[in-house]
Amino acid sequence: MRLNEGTAAMKVPADLLGGHVRVLDEAVATGRLPGREALDAYRMAGARAAELGLPLRDLVDTALAMAEPAERDGPGRDGDAGTALLPALRRVVSALMEGYENAQRLAVRQEEAARREFVDDLLQGRSDRLAERAEHFGLRLAESYVVAVARPAVPAGPGGGELPARRIEDALVTRFGSHNVLIAARDGLLVCVAPGSLTAATGEFTHHVRQAFAPGWRVGVGRPHRGPGGVVASYREAGNAIELGDRLGLRAAVLKAADLLVFPVLLRDREAIDDLVTTVLSPLLEARGGPEPLLHTLEAVFAAQGNQSAAARKLGISTRAVTYRLERIRRLTGFSPDDPTQRFTLETAVLGARLLDWPAQPLASQVRS
């Protein structure tokens, strides 16, 4: 049996399967299946096809087409020319596919390693060919970008492998295109980098986080900034928003840095906020039961825009109890939440107390005294 190469519709380079007809002819003539050396050559051919970006289907179709007999010269050694052909072809195709798939897996691992390295360099501000490497992932760093960070209720593994980064990225790429959004797992967080002009991207990211994460997740969203340094700044703002939410006991699952700008301002002047908390709230330390119930009452009243009934429902106590606690606060501190000016001072002092973790942590002025 002679095999005719001309019958194959060659869709791959001619040299890729150059010895294919000879191997199959030998199998038909001798009845022996291809050996290890021949199969290793097929694996290498499959790997090369993957590296060249050739479709696996085209590779297999070509190998099968080249096996079609053009003529039958007579029976093989075992009396049937086709007896060894199908088993040999099965081994050959299996080796081609194995080589192809191994090369693909290696390429995926290399791409993921390159992505992790790029994301680390980007978010830490390391600038080694950053703009050039960013283009490979579809980012144009001369534009403005916003970063959103998602934290699961239960911390993920050290490498972030448990986070559904690829699944969420695939969903966002389907909607926004492959050159707009980058999703990566880093330090147990899920990070989304998107153009500042693509305002819907962070909302879509949050939507998929809500579906993928167990209750208790939280998302921080930075502000848009330009350039590689802007990505770093937005990333830090997103992380700081989550941290501020924890420290302040905020209930919102999504926290935007733009909505929390007052808190970094307060923290920049530590001495002033320390003095405010000491002056306004330290008298609450004398209250029976400690200051925490009174601080919680103030927080509930401020959150309810002064509605004492709503605050009472939130606290699980009676409206009369809220009124009584507010009167105790007024007597101890001299400040009343009913007075607009005093209310602002009280609210700022309470926020400062949460930022400084007071009264659990003593203030600097208390330590000095």
Rank of each mutant, 00 (worst) to 15 (best):
Arg133Asn: 04
Val60Cys: 09
Glu132Lys: 12
Gly188Asn: 01
Leu266Trp: 03
Arg268His: 06
Leu106His: 12
Arg57Ser: 13
Leu255Pro: 00
Phe176Asn: 05
Arg91Thr: 01
Gly222Trp: 03
Pro87Lys: 03
Arg32Cys: 08
Gly222Phe: 00
Glu162Met: 06
Ala27Leu: 07
Leu298Lys: 07
Val262Met: 11
Gly306Tyr: 05
Leu315His: 06
Phe205Lys: 10
Arg251Ser: 14
Asp73Glu: 08
Arg126Asp: 09
Asp274Val: 14
Gly19Cys: 08
Gly229Cys: 10
Ala113Arg: 15
Ala171Gly: 09
Ala150Thr: 00
Ala364Gly: 08
Ser127Met: 10
Ala184Val: 09
Arg48Val: 13
Phe137Val: 12
Lys11Asn: 09
Ala184Tyr: 01
Gln211Thr: 10
Asp121Ile: 00
Arg328Tyr: 00
Gly188Thr: 05
Gly177Asn: 06
Ala50Lys: 13
Gly53Trp: 01
Phe213Ala: 06
Glu286Arg: 13
Ala238Gly: 03
Gly99Ile: 15
Gly222Pro: 02
Phe302Leu: 14
Leu123Lys: 10
Leu276His: 00
Val280Glu: 08
Asn240Glu: 14
Leu122Ser: 11
Thr323Gly: 02
Val367Gln: 09
Val193Phe: 05
Leu89Thr: 13
His20Gly: 05
Ser365Cys: 07
Ser94Ala: 15
Pro264Met: 07
Asp170Leu: 11
Asp58Glu: 12
Gly289Asp: 09
Asp259Val: 12
Arg57Gln: 10
Ala114Leu: 01
Ala304Phe: 02
Thr174Tyr: 05
Gly177Thr: 01
Gly74Glu: 04
Thr323Val: 10
Glu347Met: 05
Gly227Pro: 02
